[in-house]
Design a protein around this nucleic acid. Sequence first.
DNA 1: CTACCGATCCCCT
DNA 2: GGGGATCGGTAGA
Length: 233
Amino acid sequence: MRGLLEGPVDVAARALLGALLIRTDAVGARIGRIVEVEAYAGEEDAASHARFGPTRRNRAMYGPPGRAYVYRVYGMHHCLNVVTGPPGEPSAVLVRAVEPVTSIDAMRAARIAAAVAGHRGADPGRAVAENGRIGRLAASSLASGPALVAASFSVGMDDNGADLCAIASPLRLGVEPTVRSDGGTREAECPIVAGPRVGVAYATPPWDAVAWRFWLAGSEALSRPRGALRSGA
DNA sequence: CTACCGATCCCCT
DNA sequence: GGGGATCGGTAGA
């Protein structure tokens, strides 16, 4: 897996589709399948957090490939990236959506915990409300967005810089068998589709429109379109 | 179905 | 002091 992450970031992003995201902690072991990602290149990418050079926040992006780059967004959510490229080159892949595979209940519990923690003040009714709302969600919707992936897998700033390719890591990547029991391949049933990245209107051309968002066609766990464009899915 | 809005806070140019 | 690699609720067509 780490070898696949050393090359160009768009190639690494495609390689991460279908890979497993694995969390092992007290809440419960969880496994999901990555179905949607976005590639962010180096300092030349006007949409990347590295566009102004190294800062405190983006430090992990400059590290070796296979590490996690976690950041907080909008004051309340977290997003998980997989660092790619050689050390010193700040490219990364944002994990935008994951299809739950095992331990759906643990993912729900993590979602509820994140939702409650994200709100100010102790409100007893909040936990009850979130429990009911999230309990009703379809499994395919639990991690269908970058902040939802982080919440479902209990990803926080503690995971920033963690090695996602170490077998002993509590948060890591895995590879799913590509050959099914009937002899077919998963690639054959899930072609990759490319489209523009989401939420990067602040970037200057051509970086605001480059088709570096990749997803597995037909997946039910893809992120929901907000306001604008959606194609091919 | 689409569109807008508020929440919330750390980071930075 | 401005704004964001988001989400969920609400209003209206």
